[in-house]
Nucleic acid binder design. Structure first.
Lengths: 143, 143
DNA sequence: CAGTATCCTTGCGGATACTG
DNA sequence: CAGTATCCGCAAGGATACTG
């Protein structure tokens, strides 16, 4: 693709967006970026209404604490709804809210593209501090 | 919106996505979630090709260190391109790559929706540990 | 100007134990 | 089962000073 059309396209892309909203976007991203949030939304999107433990079962590696935390956060964000049956052997279910569903839907085109371009991202990991000082010195033993 | 169509829509939304890709999605999110990355991509989307300092000027509050870090990360991710003019009074410019532009474009519909639904997100901040123990006790003095 | 080099704070995320 | 309550490590992010 040539530079010019590239520039034109990206500017067109941004025409509708103001920098003022960056904070807002980052906030949304941080919600989804909360390590488990995205998986939970996805699980609820597929599974409908699920119990706490069932969600946990679908998410390899999550601890109870982080699951509860993430669910609470998502609830506060208005993305999911919590149903507490008030039974004495606890029974709580979660479900995507209308907002949560809409968010999920609006992410689809992005994910589709991401998956198609997976190769672009696979190799790069957040390195940051490492490599800052040793980029070509051969890696020092980590420990 | 009634529950049933909601469920149907969310399931349709997920039909194309497998859980296996969640790691990948989170990786992409984490790139964009790097506090400044999104703003940089946005700035470059609007501004075209910009110098280091010019980007810094457009991003209220960023430190040199974080700016350089984020730029390097984005470069490693293949989202931006770095042009070093090798002049003795340093002159470096950055520009969105084809991949970066495409990513930006694919995010537009999402941001449009987010902005329209800003009210949903404005109030909720990541609280996590705070409020875990005091949700309704009245907030304790922070500091 | 465009970075490095250091040092430091914050808080996310994990491990584990306990409870109604 | 669905949480709380603690404790902890580590990486992100910031502040500041210095350099080619």
């Amino acid at each position: 693709m040539d530079r010019e059309s590239l520039l034109a396209r990206s500017q067109a892309a941004c025409a509708a967006l103001s920098a003022d909203d960056d904070g807002l976007k980052r906030e949304v991203l941080s919600h989804a970026g909360n390590r488990w949030s995205l998986g939970i939304v996805h699980a609820l999107g597929v599974g409908g209404r699920l119990r706490h433990a069932e969600i946990g079962r679908r998410m390899e590696g999550v601890t109870q604490r982080m699951l509860t935390r993430s669910l609470r956060q998502l609830e506060r964000d208005g993305l999911i709804i919590r149903y507490d049956y008030q039974e004495k052997s606890p029974r709580v279910e979660y479900e995507l809210s209308a907002t949560g569903t809409a968010l999920l839907e609006h992410m689809i085109p992005l994910w589709m593209w991401v998956i198609d371009n997976a190769a672009q991202f696979r190799q790069s990991r957040t390195v940051f501090d490492a490599g800052e000082l040793s980029a070509e010195k051969g890696l020092q033993s980590k420990k």
